[in-house]
Write a protein that binds this DNA or RNA. Structure first.
Lengths: 227, 227
DNA sequence: GCATATTTGTCCGTATGTATA
DNA sequence: CTATACATACGGACAAATATG
């Protein structure tokens, strides 16, 4: 999708939301967040204030408040006196993201006495549907949902938030991977295998597979980000 | 400290920072954050836009941007059309915060092959200095620094950020504990014991003590927050 | 390296909507 | 229920920083 098309879609998104949700700044942030997630705004793109005022139908002050929100979420980057840009992940970021994922996901899976197997298999099913439709970014999103389900079994609101944050950042990286199918498709099978192990009560086996999963995904993304 | 004194101090803080750091909104957020941490603004206090414009010497737009930042950090709460308030922790929040701390801190300590024993003992020493000065909130802060040192041994920027966030929220709770000395003083000794175990290479012993530490602190805070 | 155009950072005045005494 | 205080949001203005030719 071109940036022009993206900006064109803003009117619809903004108009629809404005009537239902909270403040103008939040609605604006929601719209921009969705746009970034869809790939309408790509990592490194400059986001000029002036160019969004009219399509979003908000004032500069409101737009700038929305920017602040997204900067805090690490979806946008703010360079003083130079503007805001869609965040570009570095290899260091990818490495760090996986460090945290490994720590949190492995521990969450190991200590959850009651893993949410339903949510896990639902995520796998959803991933298969996306795969059938050849929506590989959708597969990637479903895969992340699977891992969120693992963490959700701990039952902590803050841990869920942390995982949401990590997911959002990683998805930025997805947009920079060359061949989405080659990247996402295989992990669908591996998530299914982890769900299987869990369903059979083989938690340690599942943990082992999860560890290998994260190691491989990390290596693959790092390779793409250092090339 | 009264709210009046607090507002009075803003001019100095703001003036000093303004010249060194980034944008006005960030500087303003830094100032307000410090004020909240010091206890100049207490949980539940209403923060009226109008009353801060003059002492902070910023426009409404800038102040509102700063508010957004602090809301994201969970130090302020934003009630639409009613204003912003210093966040009030609930018992549920305390419970959740400790759930995440347990998961992260125990795992971090266990898997860190190279615990930063220096930073840990420095935090203990600092805590003892505060205790000698009978600054019990300072002791609490030093105690948190000790636990940050444990997590920092993982070497992840994001994990450090997460820990900073958890610490900031917990400190809000400190302000609502009745007897700061009774609450903080004893944990200083227990941190020292954990550092000792680590220095002797007894990681599993340290983990066990840390687990008990967190269980006890959680119970004690929960008791205060349900009463 | 310079002059110009663009964009950001900040402030102000004001109109409107909402909650509370 | 009215009045008042306050938050929300807009649009215009100008200085300062940055990008561009």
């Amino acid at each position: 999708m071109s940036v022009e098309d993206a900006v064109g879609r803003l009117r619809d998104l903004a108009g629809a939301r404005r009537r239902s949700h909270g403040t103008a700044a939040e609605v604006t942030a929601d719209t921009l967040r969705e746009l970034i997630m869809e790939g309408g705004l790509r990592p490194g793109d400059r986001v000029v204030e002036e160019s969004l005022l009219e399509p979003l139908e908000v004032s500069r002050n409101t737009l700038r408040e929305a920017f602040r929100l997204l900067v805090r979420e690490k979806l946008l980057e703010h360079k003083v006196n130079r503007g805001v840009f869609v965040r570009v992940l570095t290899a260091t970021d990818v490495d760090d993201l996986f460090t945290v994922r490994v720590l949190i996901e492995l521990t969450a899976l190991r200590r959850s006495r009651e893993p949410n197997w339903t949510a896990m298999t639902e995520a796998v099913a959803q991933g298969r549907a996306y795969a059938a439709a050849e929506d590989w970014l959708g597969v990637g999103t479903a895969n992340m949902r699977f891992h969120k389900a693992i963490v959700a079994s701990v039952g902590s609101a803050r841990l869920d938030e942390i995982m949401d944050q990590l997911t959002a950042e990683l998805r930025l990286g997805f947009h920079e991977m060359g061949d989405p199918r080659a990247f996402h498709e295989k992990y669908l099978t591996r998530n299914a295998a982890i769900a299987d192990a869990v369903s059979q009560g083989d938690i340690e086996g599942a943990v082992l597979q999860l560890q290998e999963y994260l190691d491989d995904a990390k290596s693959e993304m790092l390779a793409a980000f250092t090339a």
